[in-house]
């Protein structure tokens, strides 16, 4: 049962590349840092435009609709809605290109 030849999934089934069902804590930390980086980009752009007296629909919409990293619930930070999953939630790391896309909002009630 122990040691080199213990029956683990990769040993008994051959090649196994699977994404774990939940994120590890360093993965969550890096995800939070990425969320904060996006928040800071939006804040910088907004401050620069405000100083010039300009208003942009894109930035205003993001500010009105999207929660910042601090405002988000852990549930929304690390999981996302999926209609095919049990309990309608999957880890946000299952989203393709998840480190380079913004996924912050989920349907209300799920």
């Amino acid at each position: 049962m122990f040691g080199l030849f213990r029956p683990s999934s990769p040993l008994s089934g051959g090649l196994l590349w699977k994404r774990p069902w939940r994120m590890s804590s360093p993965q969550k930390l890096r995800h939070r840092l990425r969320l904060r980086a996006v928040d800071s980009v939006v804040a910088t752009v907004d401050a620069a435009l405000t100083r010039q007296g300009l208003v942009t629909k894109n930035v205003e919409r993001w500010k009105n609709e999207m929660p910042t990293e601090a405002e988000m619930l852990p549930k929304d930070k690390y999981t996302m809605f999926d209609r095919k999953e049990r309990r309608y939630r999957k880890g946000v790391h299952k989203l393709p290109k998840w480190t380079r896309v913004s996924q912050r909002l989920n349907p209300p009630g799920f």
């Binding site: 910088t44 620069a48 435009l49 100083r51 930035v59 993001w62 380079r100 896309v101």
Partner: peptide, 21 residues
């Protein structure tokens, strides 16, 4: 330059770039 169109372009790629004024 700080302008509305550049701001809109930055918003399209905000996950990929670092921005300072």
């Amino acid at each position: 330059p700080v302008s509305r169109d550049i701001a809109g372009m930055i918003m399209k790629v905000k996950e990929l770039v670092d921005v300072q004024e």
